[in-house]
Design a protein around this nucleic acid. Structure first.
Length: 404
RNA sequence: GCCGAGGUGGCAGAAUGGUUAAUGCGACGGACUGCAGAUCCGUUUCCUGGGGGUUCGAUUCCCUCCCUCGGCUCCA
């Protein structure tokens, strides 16, 4: 069964496909490792985890790449604050971040390339952009200004930006009309801050070149599925896509999926506002399965308001479902049911996930099944136990929940 | 301004063309109780934002208007 996702670039549902004989090329934008993961990160990577699990359960191999941004201004600032080197801080936070994702029972990507290892390739991307004649230098920075694109080629942000700049007179975007959508590709900088040699002098490449260089090298462009949090659409994915359009005339990815924010007090969880719930804290409180249930209980592209009450309710709901499954599977209780009920449930879950990764609807199927089977006191017959188990194993494989 | 998601009973929230539009909370009545709470039983007539259209039939599909929420160069 095909996995159809709401594609952000076209605004339409699109099936995830692959090149014949190749695995699905999945590139998920990773974190800047300067602080602990919060539940917003958790939800983001969780959504791609379920997408990958679904494809693999369908027998489709996935090559899953997630970059680690291990040099960046905020990382420098944090390192200085703590009195450690930016490299040491990045390594430490990277380990913690990946450990927390694994604790949420995520399948970790096969490859987690670090930005620091890709600087020479990013320099090469910058060099090619320099040759387009669309780059200008302003002091220590070189900036690339993309040409105007026809509708549908990229996220419709340049129009937005122009309108936004006009509607807010104090907006710090100087020549907005002509330069909407421009992004930095090289900045001069010296140690102890991150710095690498280049034809333009020592410094650092712009962030957007990172994912382009990595995806091109490790997966080949265009990739099949790409995404991250909704906040990455602009400027990050817009910019990556501009580079792909410049060099190849094709978008960065066949399908873009962007995950809705986890909201706290009505607005986005953010490190700068200090309003966030660390992933580790939530995991310690309710465990991976209940947290997965909660984070996936709203459609992936929609926002999820964080609420301790709802978290507790999700935990209770997950446990109710798990207990119902376990009880139903205990054939020693003299069960008479065939495996049909479990197989139907697995088919329902599969169908809901295939259609837009509707985790919320899939979970509702599980809840409904649990209610029905509990009320009628059903239990599987000993002879059908193996087939029923296989059905639940399939659900587990796709959702990452541990039910049996 | 632009992009996106929505407007269902007092509140929250299901139902992606088909019988009296779920369920939960709240409220009200009753049982129990010295009173209250908790618990249990029952009741809750009244609800699909406005206006067109498609259809035998619309909460559901199309158009339009109004309103709400989120986002719009740190960011998952």
């Amino acid at each position: 069964m095909e996995l159809v996702l709401p594609d952000t670039l076209t605004g339409r549902p699109r099936a995830v496909r692959r090149k014949p004989g190749r695995p699905v090329a999945l590139y998920v934008c990773g974190p800047t490792v300067y602080d602990a993961a919060h539940v917003g990160h958790g939800r983001n990577y969780l959504v791609f985890d379920v997408a990958r699990r679904f494809l693999e359960a369908e027998g489709i191999p996935v090559r899953h790449v997630m970059n680690i941004t291990d040099f960046e201004d905020k990382l420098d600032a944090r390192a200085e604050e703590l009195g450690v080197s930016w490299r040491a801080l990045a390594r430490r936070e990277e380990r913690a971040f990946l450990r927390d994702l694994a604790a949420l029972h995520l399948l970790l990507p096969q490859l987690t390339p670090r930005a620091t290892e890709y600087v020479p390739r990013m320099v090469e991307v910058a060099r090619r952009l320099m040759r387009t004649g669309r780059v200008y230098r302003d002091g220590n920075e070189w900036t690339y200004t993309p040409p105007h694109r026809a509708a549908g080629k990229n996220f419709p942000t340049d129009r937005q930006l122009a309108a936004h700049a006009v509607s807010e007179p104090g907006h710090p975007f100087p020549e907005s009309a002509g330069r909407a959508g421009a992004f930095m590709i090289w900045r001069l900088q010296r140690p102890p801050k991150p710095s690498w040699p280049s034809p333009w002098g020592p410094g650092i490449p712009g962030w957007h070149l990172e994912c382009y260089a990595m995806a091109d090298r490790l997966l080949g462009l265009p990739v099949d599925l790409h995404g991250g949090g909704l906040d990455l659409i602009y400027p990050h994915h817009y910019a990556e896509n501009e580079i792909a359009l410049e060099f190849r005339g094709r978008p960065f990815s066949h399908v873009f999926l962007h995950v809705g924010f986890v909201l706290i007090d009505g607005s986005k969880m953010s490190k700068s506002r200090g309003a966030l719930v660390p992933l580790r804290t939530a995991l310690n409180e309710v465990g991976a399965d209940a947290l997965r249930w909660y984070l996936l209980s709203t459609p992936p592209t929609e926002r999820l308001p964080w609420s301790p009450v709802e978290l507790a309710r999700s935990r209770a709901e997950f446990l109710r479902v798990r207990d119902a499954v376990r009880h139903w599977m205990r054939a020693s209780a003299g069960g008479r049911d065939s495996a049909a009920s479990a197989r139907r449930l697995a088919a329902d879950v599969r169908r809901e996930l295939a259609r837009g990764l509707a985790t919320d609807r899939a979970f509702r199927r599980l809840s409904a099944w649990a209610t029905t089977e509990t009320e009628r006191g059903g239990a599987v017959a000993r002879t059908d136990r193996a087939r029923a188990r296989a059905a639940f194993r399939d659900i587990e494989a796709r959702t990452g929940l541990r039910l049996l």
